[in-house]
Design a protein around this nucleic acid. Structure first.
Lengths: 155, 155
DNA sequence: TAAAGCGACACAAAAATTGTTACGCTATTC
DNA sequence: GAATAGCGTAACAATTTTTGTGTCGCTTTA
């Protein structure tokens, strides 16, 4: 299942946090804690959806293709093609089993409904929202650390 | 990824299609096309949620614990504990990366929202609905076959 | 013209899921 | 009351999916 979506949001938020700068896949990979090729794979999909822009060669790298507030998480989801939260079981049912022969089709309606619900939900969040949450969480941590310089050198 | 949910719905629909009868895990396994132990694993979870009832020993087997119209797919989902459609990436982010250190927490809000949306959607479907869909699909196929006894002996 | 970066593919490693075997326990049935 | 059908469960094997790596070519900037 898809931790890919999580990674993609992570990357986009990172790009949003350093506006204007072109980040290389290697830099991103170090921040995220994985391999540059993994990053490129993800970003290639996001580029197809016109969410990011890449430039090869020296001085190249990645930037957001639009304002963070204009990137809804539903778009990210679609871009990744990760719309398969539900998955059919692929067993060969017994030929005489009426249920087995037809349940998948019935389920596909259910799943289409659920997908739509998820999408609607994700439409309510943008990369800007995420960045804000991340930054205020970081601020809270800093304040807490300053208030109680308890453990290691108040860092 | 969870094709488990699909399997569980399949099983429940099968039980609903033969009301009153206790089906053995082996019978179900043959219908579904898998191993009895796999079936039991699933049904054990559904039993914990009081959706089905089992009886061991001779003459034993499984039945629905309530009317098919009283089993919502959201309950099935909860019973299976399959509420992890989204998964966090588990890479160790760089210690200095503010985004990496906080994005998971931010995402957890997003995911909680989405889960709720899915649940609401699944509440709208019951096993009875599925059974009806399955049965009318089967009926349609039969009629089509009768209308054009084209291929193999009009079967 | 050399180096930095992306693009893409093939392959390796790891993780998660699914299937299988085996054995104990319980309640029927004869 | 003994044999048998069937669940309960755990351990293990096989498969599938996901993630990570290595490599090499191409492009652009310095």
């Amino acid at each position: 299942m898809n931790s890919r979506f999580s990674t993609a949001v992570h990357i986009l938020t990172l790009l949003a946090s350093m506006p204007g700068e072109r980040l290389t896949s290697e830099f991103i990979a170090v921040s995220v804690g994985t391999n540059p090729v993994v990053i490129r794979r993800q970003l290639a999909l996001l580029r197809n959806a016109a969410l990011v822009d890449s430039k090869g060669a020296r001085g190249g790298g990645w930037v957001l293709a639009r304002a963070p507030g204009q990137i809804a998480l539903s778009q990210v989801r679609v871009a990744l093609g990760s719309e398969a939260q539900f998955r059919m079981h692929r067993n060969e049912p017994h030929p005489n089993c009426v249920v087995g022969q037809n349940v998948r089709q019935a389920l596909s309606h259910v799943y289409a409904d659920a997908e739509e619900a998820v999408n609607t939900s994700l439409k309510g969040w943008t990369i800007e929202d995420l960045l804000n949450e991340v930054q205020s969480a970081a601020r809270r941590k800093r304040n807490r650390a300053k208030a109680q310089p308890a453990s290691k050198s108040g860092k």
